[in-house]
């Protein structure tokens, strides 16, 4: 094997390694669990997918114990939001967006407050005893919140 061929092989190996690392990273990101969280003072300790879905579709305004819920969502285009709705009720993001657009513009219900990243969601849930949010499992290293539902892929 001459030097030129060896260089090509080495470059190819580096390229393939980076490629598979990227694929692996993307796969991990896709398959990471999504966890639904509430404030630690909230007496609710677990919720069903249907209960969480109803809150995030504006069909319910309360936790299972009847107390008011402050729903915190991610930005409209956030990949985590798409993943959350796909796992919680199977709705594609463009259906979710048109659904909420109709509710918001018709004035039926105030849309959820939105945050730009996992950290801001966790912070908002920490500070509000009535809040509910969802984040990636890997971001859940903060105290002050309680996981009430875990969504696997």
């Amino acid at each position: 094997m001459d030097n030129y061929t060896a260089k090509i092989c080495a470059t190819r190996r580096v390229f393939l390694t980076v490629f598979f690392l990227l694929i692996g990273w993307v796969s991990c990101a896709d398959s990471a669990d999504v966890v639904v969280i509430v404030n630690k003072s909230n007496p609710v300790t677990s919720m069903s997918s249907a209960q969480v879905s109803d809150l995030y579709l504006g069909r319910s305004r309360t936790f299972p114990d009847g107390s008011i819920a402050h729903v915190i969502d991610h930005a409209r285009e956030a990949p985590l939001r798409e993943e959350f709705f796909r796992r919680i009720n199977g709705m594609p993001l463009n259906k979710v967006n048109t659904y909420w657009a109709r509710l918001a513009v018709s004035g039926q219900i105030m849309p959820p407050v939105t945050k730009t990243n996992n950290g801001d969601v966790i912070l908002a849930v920490q500070e509000d005893s009535k809040a509910i949010g969802y984040v990636e499992d890997s971001a859940l290293i903060h105290a002050g919140v309680v996981q009430v539902l875990r969504l696997h892929d």
Binding site: S60, N97, V105
Partner: peptide
Amino acid sequence: PALDARLGRVGYDVFLMSDHRNLGYA
């Protein structure tokens, strides 16, 4: 949580699309 009462100028709401006719995105 189950009751809403609105006072003022409110959207006319009888048909399926009455209150979001202007929102083409919906």
